[in-house]
């Protein structure tokens, strides 16, 4: 059988280039996408676009993946596979949409059993998503096993105001921070385990030097009164913090202490 030279050479060239193509396709493929500035308010957005934008936020700005995984239970937070479908059954009488928005904006309102209540509100620093981004993120979570029906009007207009303003929302508490510092070092014995700015150095409990920046007043107040119920920061031993501050401290001392802690930024 005589094969023409052109055919042989052609097949050879195809084989060579095919193997180059094959190799290039065999490594993980990364596309370089142009950066996007997300503002969806006012425009017409399809649910598909919204979900895509939300997924992007989930992976990037939202930093959700540090604790949450999809299709894999994390040690710090629940698996989000099927979250959109499950959300409707979490709280009786609450729609999936409302539950998801609540869990993003007020994470401590309902904490899934077996996990510590450590999630920060996504519209506050350091994550500080704006209203559009919360909208998109909700849509993405709904798309995980549910139907996407969230509209921008579902997201409270106040969302993201803190982020836009550049700091935490103004929060006034009628206490004396200086007296609170004395409580921290003295009667409260907090200093035995915690560090707060220049005061204290013990590494037993988490460093509180910037607690006001990373946690809400609600969390701080709750944690003092009910340490076990508020969960334990990852990496620290459980059940070390005394349970009896609510009975040992006077209400003035308690309010002073909280207002002191809120100065720690």
């Amino acid at each position: 059988m005589h094969v023409p030279v052109g055919v042989k050479v052609g097949l050879f060239a195809v084989a060579v280039m095919g193997s180059y193509s094959y190799f290039a396709n065999s490594i993980p493929q990364i596309e370089s996408k142009p950066p996007q500035e997300l503002s969806l308010e006012g425009g017409n957005v399809t649910p598909a676009q919204l979900v895509k934008a939300g997924e992007e936020i989930f992976h990037t700005k939202g930093t959700c993946e540090i604790c949450h995984r999809i299709g894999q239970p994390g040690t710090r937070a629940p698996d989000l596979a099927g979250a959109g479908g499950r959300a409707a059954k979490r709280k009786p009488g609450m729609s999936a949409k409302a539950y998801l928005i609540e869990s993003l904006l007020q994470p401590q309102a309902y904490v899934v059993e077996g996990y510590p209540p450590i999630m920060p509100a996504v519209d506050k620093p350091p994550i500080a998503l704006n209203r559009s981004e919360v909208w998109a993120l909700t849509a993405f979570l709904e798309s995980l096993g549910g139907t996407v029906d969230v509209t921008l009007n579902d997201i409270p207009a106040s969302v993201g105001a803190a982020a836009a303003g550049g700091g935490a929302a103004e929060f006034k508490i009628p206490g004396d921070p200086q007296a609170g510092a004395q409580v921290f070092q003295g009667k409260g014995t907090c200093i035995a385990c915690h560090k707060a700015g220049k005061i204290g150095a013990s590494p037993v409990g988490p460093d509180l030097s910037q607690i006001a920046k990373i946690q809400t007043p609600d969390y701080i107040m709750g944690k003092i009164l009910n340490p076990a119920g508020m969960g334990t920061v990852a990496g620290f031993p459980k059940g070390v913090m005394p349970q009896d501050f609510g009975t040992r401290l006077t209400s003035k001392e308690y309010v002073d202490l909280v207002s002191f802690l809120l100065t720690l930024k």
Binding site: G18, Y20, S21, I27, Q29, I30
Partner: peptide
């Protein structure tokens, strides 16, 4: 605007070279 991944680029290069 996105820059394609290597596999896609390789396929284009192969086709054009052919």
């Amino acid at each position: 605007a996105a820059t394609p991944a290597l596999g896609y680029a390789a396929n284009v290069i192969t086709s054009v070279t052919l």
